[in-house]
Design a protein around this nucleic acid. Structure first.
Lengths: 342, 342
DNA sequence: TGTTAGCACTCATCAAAGGCGAGTGCTAAC
DNA sequence: GTTAGCACTCGCCTTTGATGAGTGCTAACA
């Protein structure tokens, strides 16, 4: 037995209905509501076939069918092929941002809020990884007599800062001249290049500079490895709007995953630069999310950097709408963060 | 009728039991479990009095009694009077911090996690307000040809940063000399003093400097007013562990409040420097939290600055334990953040 | 006068029973 | 290949009744 066009149409109708109602779909519903021109009995036969093919599950014998993960997969692949992603939403999303928020952290927090507001799902926004960012300016600001704040301005406009120990006897002017020197030498390079360069050159340096440059190099390593990519969450409690999560235990599991952000960051980073990924149920690889779907999209920042935005919701998600919104939001973020570049 | 010692003992027993079990307490339970040396009948009479006095509620006629907000209030006031706060926990809390995390944001995030882990409630940690922080160093770092990053190092070790527009034609060296000048003039002053000073002096300045100083002054106003005090949440989903919140609707309300942090910040700032405050049920002023209690404590940072830590849980909270932990955590935070001061 | 035993009464909770209805699979006719 | 008809299944809801925890009241007791 094979999947034919009619089976597919029926499957699609079932998925659409289930996405809307969250209750198992019966043959009669499909026959009447979706004007197939077929009687419920015929639908039943087809549904029986679809179940055999693994696209439908039956919670119990006298209930309707619900789509399996495999069915959603088919559905989504179809959506992506047909390119349902419209960019018309881009403009409306623009309104949600006001132009003053340019700080990376504010932007991603706000983006997460907008995204969860628009989709009514839980949203995730991951800031770009710093790996490929190029240094534009580096400056040491004295904090105490033995420590200084490192400020790095990159072409992504992202500033990461940390406090490093500096040797004693370096006053503000000394730090400034070091800053100038470092900016001169490292400007235009990526963080990882700069790190390497610093480590090499520190050998030839005087004793009391060596420690400082070593610390800075280490910091660049951290910042560059992207281990500190910031994650913003939007509307975590949105999940409670769905009957799938009216069970408190399940809700707790879901929310717990959100609290330990590490797993989520890993998951989002697996995206690997693809325009869109859709992970359905078990495909997420996190047991607590086994009846969720995670839809992610990439936004670009310059030629080498990208961040990730995503939405988590029940497997019966409005995939088309979500993909479209993610697409629009991604573009908006690229524009917004790109302004720092000029 | 008056509250006497015996009534109080009985009330205390009822509260203790209800904190433990979350089920209405009957007269028999008190009589047997708490060795009052009184029969259940006598307890019943007393309970009836306590209800009349407003300390107990009865969910329905054939159920036991539950403590009212007024009862918790009495209970907590008693606790505070007796000074149940031990400092013994301080040392153990120390272990949860590793010494490298000195950045304000990391510290408060971590503190929130530790706090929710120890108490099993939802925790809140508010960073200190900047109002009284004294400027130690101010520096402008070029970001683009027309904008610069303002970095202010204060005696709290807190760095707040924002991007300001600068007039054209100011290169790195020019910015540095401005920075030096500003540091010279503003060092040792509080943010609000500095703001005022800047605004006054900007009148006498050249045209293209005026805008810059104006922007910096504005930023100081924002930072100083504390509107940007950072709030970290710990274990939001902990609330779901309590049967009071096994109702999904209630849980959603609770979590929604957590998502809009503004209200919480307001609530925490009302603390006003008191060592401890306990808000029970309606005292929180937020409808969604009307059957929660919020316990907050202050930690000091230097002589003029303070932050707030707190715990939200059901009204039947382990007040004694929570107060004790908050006390210890507050001390630890003061020490940890104080290290930036030297 | 305060305390206690006894008793009738209330009412939430739980489990069992039964009706309802949505939905199925199968069969026979078109 | 499609459809109408029908018996059957089984989750869901409501009803019912038993259970038991807990109360308020009264009368007896120290």
């Amino acid at each position: 037995m094979m999947m034919d066009a009619r089976k597919f149409r029926i499957l699609q109708a079932i998925i659409d209905d289930y996405i809307l109602t969250a209750i198992p779909v019966g043959s009669r519903t499909i026959s009447k509501k979706y004007e197939m021109g077929l009687s419920s009995a015929t639908i039943r036969n087809e549904m029986s076939d679809l179940e055999e093919l693994g696209y439908l599950d039956q919670p119990h014998v006298s209930a309707g069918r619900i789509p399996s993960a495999k069915a959603y997969r088919l559905y989504v692949d179809q959506l992506l092929e047909r390119g349902v992603i419209s960019t018309g939403e881009s403009e409306s999303i623009h309104h949600y941002f006001d132009d003053r928020t340019r700080q990376m952290e504010d932007v991603i927090n706000h983006a997460a809020k907008v995204l969860s507001g628009l989709t009514h799902y839980t949203s995730l926004v991951l800031s770009p990884k710093g790996q490929e960012l190029r240094i534009r300016n580096l400056q040491l600001v004295p904090v105490s007599s033995t420590s200084a704040l490192v400020v790095i301005v990159t072409d992504g406009g992202i500033m990461r800062d940390t406090v490093v120990e500096v040797g004693p006897g370096l006053d503000a002017d000394a730090l400034y001249s070091i800053s100038r020197m470092l900016t001169e030498r490292l400007g235009g390079r990526t963080l990882s290049e700069a790190q390497q360069l610093l480590e090499e050159s520190s050998r030839e340096m005087q004793e009391h500079h060596r420690k400082l440059t070593g610390n800075i190099a280490q910091f660049m390593g951290q910042a560059g490895s992207g281990s500190k990519a910031k994650l913003a969450l939007g509307g975590p409690s949105n999940i409670l709007n769905f009957p799938e999560y009216s069970d408190v235990e399940k809700a707790k599991g879901f929310l717990s995953v959100l609290e330990t952000k590490d797993k989520l960051v890993d998951l989002l980073e697996k995206q690997g630069g693809m325009a869109f990924t859709v992970r359905i149920g078990p495909e997420t690889g996190i047991p607590e999310l086994s009846d969720c779907s995670l839809v992610t999209a990439t936004y670009r920042l310059g030629d080498h950097n990208h961040g990730t935005i995503g939405v988590i919701g029940p497997t019966r998600m409005h995939y088309g709408q979500v993909l479209s919104i993610l697409n629009a939001m991604g573009q908006q973020l690229s524009i917004l963060l790109g302004q720092n570049k000029e």
